[in-house]
Design a protein around this nucleic acid. Structure first.
Length: 575
DNA sequence: GGACAGACTTGGCGTTAATCTG
DNA sequence: CAGATTAACGCCAAGTCTGTCC
């Protein structure tokens, strides 16, 4: 008996100390005091970035032809041609702008001799190189298990060595520790810089950020960092300036890190504060539609769009530097059409413009008469390419919002409206008696409502039709199976048969739900809203309330990112 | 108040890894 | 167990927003 008591005692001590640690850890990790002086960390140590592998010249048998004649290129010029020949199958290599930009940048890498010979891109023949790369990638696919395993292990080793850092008391995963390899810039949509050469990044381009008392990362042998600094007011570990737009790129931590998680949490707390005062703000902007000042009316109509349609703020962009895309404040006259009457609706506004990533926003919505009249006013005496809101920009708008609520900016409305929509849709769509797959369909539908609001579209997957067909075949088979099982049940009336029928019915239902979900999701991308706009605590609470395992909603990466929410939210959580 | 740099979040998509199926 | 299919991941581009300078 004594022994048993002793074991129990030991076990309890062990158990409680483990629990204690877990609790401490949780409190420590998410409730840890934040720095009040604007600093982001006290200690930061890492190994620096991993560079792109050096260029390997082509074997001599693989030739480039100019004007029908083989020509051996210098290594720098040859490297650039490999980028182009790898893209040959893409339609964009036929575009004028792409070819012009590429040729211009390619010539910069040529020797003077090459430069004088190669004067016309149309006389260049890259097909042997293109074939060579196709063969190479085919060979890579055909590699033996052992070879693949070896590569995997090497990647894992690199991850272990360079993929983590120490920030304050935590070992944290780094988001992107590999430096982007050189290549040809593509860009999205109609980008004026497509085809330009994205140059290779060297240690001399890199600024390292770490704490003074840490072990500094070593640059590769024979090289130097551009600079090593110790700036704890920022979160990045390394940075460099990219040559296409001249913007700065960063190496930062993974979303699972304390520093990202805390920021994410705060973002949703700001959105929840908006919830408390959104009525007041709405009343005010409606009032402002009547203002005698044009700038206030414009501000109020723009804010109405941002709130109602979840439009992005719309910063000004430098013309000719990027694709021509707009957000709310940068809308132009040509992007909207007004219809005093359309079918059975009055005061309809039709939006048609390219937003972020050149994704088209198309929507027809009835608005209130005052908004409509205001829009007519804003359009007066303007050309199609003129700004709709000529007295407004994002800076003016955000200054105003800041006065309405501390920390309020245009994008908070997107977060707020996305999260509140999810919560309300979940409430509306979830039936407590539904099966788990049916409940998940409801969840996905709620998620979908948000994605539609935020205009998160995707190109239908290339294999969409086929995969729908496959699913339909499975459903048909299952239906046959079911009717066969039912016949057997009728004949035998055995309990075992009854259960079999039930099981098949469930399987069939599951397949049908899957088909519905997939069909409805054809052109909708759920990922972005799930990752960036939906307060994860709403989803966690929903899972707890309806007994859905969290794994059904969030995959491993997402669970890591939302660890704070999974720890925090109870089933009665309200956004 | 406008230009610009800087820092950080948000975005779709192609590739890769995991899972499924015959 | 290999090939097909699907889900996850990573890539890298493109936004938002703040702060500084003039």
């Amino acid at each position: 008996h004594l022994i048993i008591w002793y074991i129990i005692l030991c076990f309890s001590v062990f158990f409680f100390s483990v629990m204690g640690c877990v609790l401490l850890f949780v409190v420590f990790r998410w409730e840890e005091e934040r720095y009040t002086d604007g600093s982001k960390w006290r200690f930061l140590e890492h190994k620096g970035p991993v560079f792109a592998p050096p260029y390997e010249p082509l074997p001599d048998k693989v030739k480039f032809y100019y004007d029908g004649k083989p020509m051996k290129l210098s290594a720098p010029a040859e490297e650039v041609t490999t980028f182009f020949s790898k893209m040959l199958d893409h339609e964009y290599t036929t575009k004028d702008i792409f070819r012009k930009n590429f040729f211009k940048d390619w010539r910069k890498e040529m020797t003077s001799e090459e430069k004088s010979k190669i004067t016309d891109l149309n006389k260049c023949n890259f097909s042997e190189m293109s074939e060579y790369f196709k063969t190479q990638s085919e060979a890579r696919k055909q590699m033996s298990k052992e070879e693949k395993q070896k590569i995997k292990e090497e990647n894992e080793r690199l991850l272990q060595e360079y993929g983590f850092c120490i920030m304050d008391n935590h070992k944290e995963r780094i988001g992107n520790f590999r430096i982007e390899p050189p290549g040809l810039f593509r860009g999205r949509g109609d980008h004026p810089k497509m085809g330009m050469l994205k140059r290779r990044i060297r240690p001399e381009d890199i600024i390292i950020n770490c704490s003074k008392d840490s072990k500094q990362p070593k640059p590769p042998p024979g090289t130097k960092w551009k600079e090593v600094r110790h700036d704890n007011k920022v979160t990045w570990l390394a940075s460099w300036t990219e040559n296409i737009q001249g913007s700065i790129k960063y190496i930062m931590l993974n979303p699972s890190s304390r520093i990202k998680g805390e920021k994410d949490w705060q973002k949703y707390e700001t959105a929840r504060r908006l919830k408390k005062c959104v009525d007041r703000i709405r009343t005010q902007y409606r009032d402002d539609w009547k203002s005698k000042e044009m700038r206030i009316r414009q501000r109020a109509v723009a804010l109405y769009f941002i709130d109602k349609l979840a439009l992005r703020a719309g910063n000004e962009k430098e013309e000719g530097e990027t694709a021509d895309t707009v957000g709310c404040c940068s809308l132009r006259v040509e992007h909207i059409k007004l219809y005093p009457k359309m079918d059975d609706q009055e005061y309809v506004v039709e939006f048609d413009f390219l937003g972020k990533d050149s994704i088209r926003y198309y929507n027809k919505i009835p608005v209130e008469k005052r908004v409509f009249k205001n829009l007519q006013l804003f359009l007066e005496n303007k050309q199609p390419e003129d700004d709709l809101f000529d007295r407004l920009n994002t800076s003016i708008l955000n200054k105003h919002l800041q006065e309405l609520m501390d920390g309020l900016t245009a994008k908070v409305f997107r977060t707020y409206n996305a999260s509140i929509t999810l919560q309300q849709q979940l409430k509306e769509l979830t039936c407590p008696d539904d099966s788990v797959p049916a409940k998940i369909l409801s969840y996905n539908r709620a998620n979908r409502a948000v994605a539609i609001l935020c205009n998160h579209q995707r190109a239908p997957p290339k294999t969409f039709e086929k995969s729908m067909q496959n699913l339909q075949t499975k459903i048909d088979e299952k239906q046959n199976q079911l009717s066969a099982a039912r016949k057997q049940l009728k004949a035998a009336k055995a309990d075992r048969k009854r259960k079999a029928v039930q099981r098949i019915e469930e399987q069939l239902m599951k397949l049908q739900v899957q088909a519905t979900d997939r069909e409805e999701n054809k052109q909708i991308a759920l990922g972005t809203s799930k990752l960036n706009y939906l307060d994860p605590r709403i989803s966690v609470a929903w899972c707890k309330k309806f007994g859905i395992p969290i794994e059904k909603i969030y995959n491993k990466t997402q669970r890591e990112k939302f660890a704070w929410a999974i720890d925090m939210a109870e089933k009665d959580y309200e956004f």
